[in-house]
Structures are given as structure tokens and as C-alpha cells.
Amino acid sequence: MSFLNKATLLAVAIVLAACSNPRGGADDYDYGQGSGINSTALGDPSDPASIAYFNQTIGDTVHFTLNSTDLSEQGQVILRTQAVWLNRNPQYSILIEGHADERGTREYNVALGARRAARVEQFLIGQGVAASRLRTVSYGKERPVEACAQQRCWDLNRRAVVVVSN
């Protein structure tokens, strides 16, 4: 089998996988005007084109150190893998959430979360993801992923989450 044939087969496999995706089309529930809530079916995590696959296998979150927007080596690896996946699945739109730990004032933390989200946005654009697909939002310290008054939680909460939706 030639290289070309292999590539063709792989492409077909990806297309088939996409077709067998049990997302079943657009599934955006309306929770009422102004709820700010959209729902997206996550699909089968074994389907490499599913949102569940992105969230679980690739990883949707990168972490930051105190008051920093620097991306760690590990964070950059995750974002590069994300970019490859996002470029391969252009049907999805992307919201980047920036978060801060609780050890700061409320408004500064909103600005800090915005800075982190923008850092991730710039990185993904640098990896070829179309800027028009990307939006950013900051939650500051309002939405910790874990709540405890310890370093362990603060480390987890200083994060950016790439949220993929239809």
C-alpha cells in the first residue's frame, strides 16, 4: 500500500468516525433568554472527533503559576495538540475561559483571567487556528474548579479552559 493510499484510508476513517458520531446534529437547548447557558452534546469519547474526546483525551485545561500568564512546557504541549485537533475539526467554535485563584481581589482577578484567556488565544492562533473561531471570557475567581483554602486548590484554579461547542 502506498503512502497516498494510507493517507486516503485515514481520511476516510476520520470522515466515517465523524459520521458515526452520535451527536446527532445541532443540539442547542434554549434555557430562556439571558440564561447564558447553551448545551452541547459531548458525543462518544471513543470518537476522536467528539467534544468528549477533546475534553478527556486531549485535555481542555492548562494551568498557570501565581499572577502569571506564562505557559508551561506541559501547557504548550496540550495547546499544540488542541490546535491540531481544532484545525482538523473546523466545525466547532471555541470559547476560552480564563480563571484566577481566590487569592486576589475580585476585579483584578477578572482582568487577570482575561489576560490568561488572551494568552491561550494568541497561542492557538499561532498554531493556525482561525481567529474568527475563537472567543474569550474571564470568570476571575468566580468559578473555582475546586474550593479549598489551600495551595492545592489555588494551583488547580489558576487555569484556562478551552470549551468546544457546535
Partner: peptide
């Protein structure tokens, strides 16, 4: 007020 765009506030 504050306005954040592109990471700058």
C-alpha cells in the same frame, strides 16, 4: 469602568 480586550484591561 474597565474594558478587557485582547488581554489588555
Amino acid at each position: 469602568y474597565s474594558l478587557s480586550v485582547g488581554g489588555s484591561t
